[in-house]
Write a protein that binds this DNA or RNA. Sequence first.
DNA 1: CCGCACTTTAGAATTGTTCTAAATCTTGAC
DNA 2: GTCAAGATTTAGAACAATTCTAAAGTGCGG
Lengths: 142, 142
Amino acid sequence: MKARSPHIDEQHLTEQLGATGLRLTPQRQQVYDVLRHKRDHPTAEEVFIRAKKTMPDISHATVYNCLDALVKSGLARQVTLDRGATRYCPNMHEHGHFHCDSCQTVFDVDLPAQAMKLPKGFKADHFDIAIHGVCADCAKKK
Amino acid sequence: MKARSPHIDEQHLTEQLGATGLRLTPQRQQVYDVLRHKRDHPTAEEVFIRAKKTMPDISHATVYNCLDALVKSGLARQVTLDRGATRYCPNMHEHGHFHCDSCQTVFDVDLPAQAMKLPKGFKADHFDIAIHGVCADCAKKK
DNA sequence: CCGCACTTTAGAATTGTTCTAAATCTTGAC
DNA sequence: GTCAAGATTTAGAACAATTCTAAAGTGCGG
């Protein structure tokens, strides 16, 4: 086997983090490696457990910090944004939700009618669509 | 003013709940009224606070129960499904997530390329799309 | 070498949700 | 009506996920 790179794309990591004013630390490297290694959308807790295997002293809070750092620098995504409480709505018509990141309001928006193409055999039951951005009012103010 | 209906669409509520084997109770009525009254996607906590205004003895747990009952009978929706821990993924390519409700696996799926039409002036930053259903494997097994 | 800003750490605190056990309400059978 | 069975509500405890806090560690520029 050829000299394997101990970490995935170290250069890239440093750059992306740097652009956000953050450093590449061993812990962030590790957390990123975990995410890249098994692409099964782990929870923070799962990342913590996996990271511990090669870095036994890493702490819970650090994993959260690192995930945050990665998300901030565009190296990873939170699959379910919208931290915090679940919200409810009585509008049963198929629709999506637009979250204004500036004023925090949630607007109902029409769905793009069409079926998005799914892999063969998959049966969609229902869609949950959240769009993040800035609403008309806030866009004007800025 | 004409005799106002004390509650919204009582008949409909009874039917929908009944179809799921549930009863229409004053608390469920109240929680539903709260949802219908101000359509701002309140959290369970907010529903609790609002419901308390006209039904001071309603309890926290009951609000959760009622919301659950309403969701089960198709009278309301949870805006952010996916109770529990936030998940992360390092796939930065625009994509959606398909959750198999049977085996709990999360699959990446392509997005329906197109811009969904947003109200004028709204600026989308990014989309967060979750599709719930059954994956090919599980569909076969059943 | 020093100071400063960034990080990590352990553990406590907070928040959102679910569970538990007891009390209460409904409903249908008698 | 009366009663039992089952559904529902309640208060509060328990739990889970996340964030906060304060102290210690790290590393780079001067």
